[in-house]
Design a protein around this nucleic acid. Structure first.
Length: 400
DNA sequence: CCTCCACAGGAACTGATGGCGT
DNA sequence: ACGCCATCAGTTCCTGTGGAGG
């Protein structure tokens, strides 16, 4: 019997692979044709056309659930416009930023600035007033006579941040053109939340919502087409079973037509099949992929929690389905064990809500009459998973 | 029908960090 | 050197609440 390491290495070296091109199996890869999105592409293009004629295009708002190809379409349209305009010495600057990736308003503005070509010196990562950062952005645009297109993904997050700090950056962004003498600024907002507009300042709506494009959800049939296209390019012929493809589409379509999820599923299933040195992707692989993605998500979010959150999770684990009060005293005990100062009740309630958001625990509000009201929390994942994810944390060694 | 429990969860504040402009 | 500004984790203080039990 051969050494398993050798066997794996041999197989890898022999180049036998059912996946031809891995990049295509990432959702962010922009395919030549974006399927089922013709009218949306048209609408986006139309509202951005004025930029070709050197006049200011309308601000644009794009809605759609995750995995409906919003970002892909916007990026594609803009890059096409850029191609056209390249020769005419009329610079268009595409600036893309995702509000979810930047935790703060300041961070978002800085990331926009970096893409405009402002370096550390011109735009430090900290220390400035927000209005100052904004001023510098505009100055850069003006000075370079740039036509900047700010694409802000998940703009609902930004709106939240703005609401918290009381700064009216969105309004200023939409009206920035009034302050620009030479350049122009177009805002393209992308949002998952279709109700997000209602929570906005009416002045912002009037200028940001000049044009709106709504991306509908894909149905299972459409997702199947999308997957087929990618399979053709990314896989060796006939290496994905029809039933596996159907399952991918069905699993993702069941949610709300999330093509991103479908493609992720396909990619992971492909990788699993390859690792098993099978020459076909089967439904079993897809099922395994689904599980793996799920577990990965859980494990990474578990590992990322700070110490006190981990202690809380352990406290819940000890008494599954217990009330906040019970969790808190259990947590206090754990703190004593590991020799850390305990935090206040209020802070713990807040942390519990934060953990709940990640889906690892669920809470249910219950009223017990004279016994007051509590939230009872339940662990949604196996305790083995928790132990596995926490085993590297030295402070928690004694508890586990 | 009223009371009163055991918290939920909002708001405002503090102190530390880190870095700006002048 | 000094004041200023933003952010983060955490605290203090607070008001709100569904319904069992009197």
């Amino acid at each position: 019997m051969s050494d398993p390491i050798d066997r794996l290495l041999d197989a890898a070296e022999s180049g036998k692979s059912i996946i031809k091109n891995r990049d295509i199996l990432h959702f962010t890869y922009v395919p030549k044709i974006i399927l089922h999105r013709d009218s949306e592409q048209e609408q986006v293009t139309q509202s951005l056309i004025p930029i070709l004629k050197q006049s200011r295009p309308s601000n644009l708002l794009v809605y759609g659930k995750p995995g409906t190809g919003k970002t892909l379409v916007v990026k594609k349209v803009i890059s096409k416009i850029q191609e056209r305009v390249e020769q005419s010495k009329f610079p268009i600057k595409l600036v893309y930023s995702n509000s979810k990736e930047e935790t703060t308003l300041y961070g978002l503005l800085v990331s926009l600035g970096r893409q405009l070509g402002l370096d550390e010196k011109e735009l430090p990562t900290t220390g400035l007033a927000t209005s100052e950062v904004f001023k510098r952005l505009l100055h850069k645009i003006d000075e370079g006579k740039l036509n900047a297109i700010f694409v802000i993904d998940e703009i609902d997050y930004l709106a939240q941040l703005v609401a918290k700090t009381g700064k009216d950056i969105l309004y200023q962004l939409t009206r920035a053109n009034e302050r620009l003498k030479q350049g122009s600024l177009t805002l393209v907002g992308i949002s998952n939340d279709l109700t997000f507009k209602e929570r906005l300042d009416p002045r912002v709506i009037s200028s940001l919502g000049e044009e709106e494009v709504v991306f509908t959800n894909y149905n299972v049939e459409q997702i199947k087409k999308i997957l087929e296209e990618r399979i053709n390019e990314a896989f060796v012929e006939n290496s994905v079973e029809e039933s596996a493809l159907n399952l991918c589409a069905a699993l993702a379509g069941g949610e709300h037509g999330d093509a991103r999820r479908a493609i992720d599923l396909l990619r992971v299933a492909g990788e699993i099949a390859e690792r098993q040195q099978s020459d076909k992707v089967t439904t079993k692989n897809v099922e395994q992929a689904r599980q793996k993605i799920e577990e990965n998500k859980e494990e990474t979010s578990l590992e990322a929690f700070p110490l006190h959150e981990k202690l809380i999770i352990l406290a819940i684990m000890k008494a599954n389905g217990s009330s906040t009060g019970e969790i808190y005293s259990s947590y206090k005990n754990l703190c004593k064990v590991v020799g850390r100062d305990e935090l206040t009740n209020r802070r713990i309630t807040q942390m519990l809500s934060e953990i709940e958001l990640s889906g690892i625990i669920t809470g249910r509000l219950i009223h017990q009459g004279i016994h007051g009201r509590t939230k009872k929390y339940k662990l949604e994942i196996s305790s083995e998973m928790v132990k596995k994810a926490f085993k590297d944390e030295l402070t928690l060694k004694d508890i586990l």
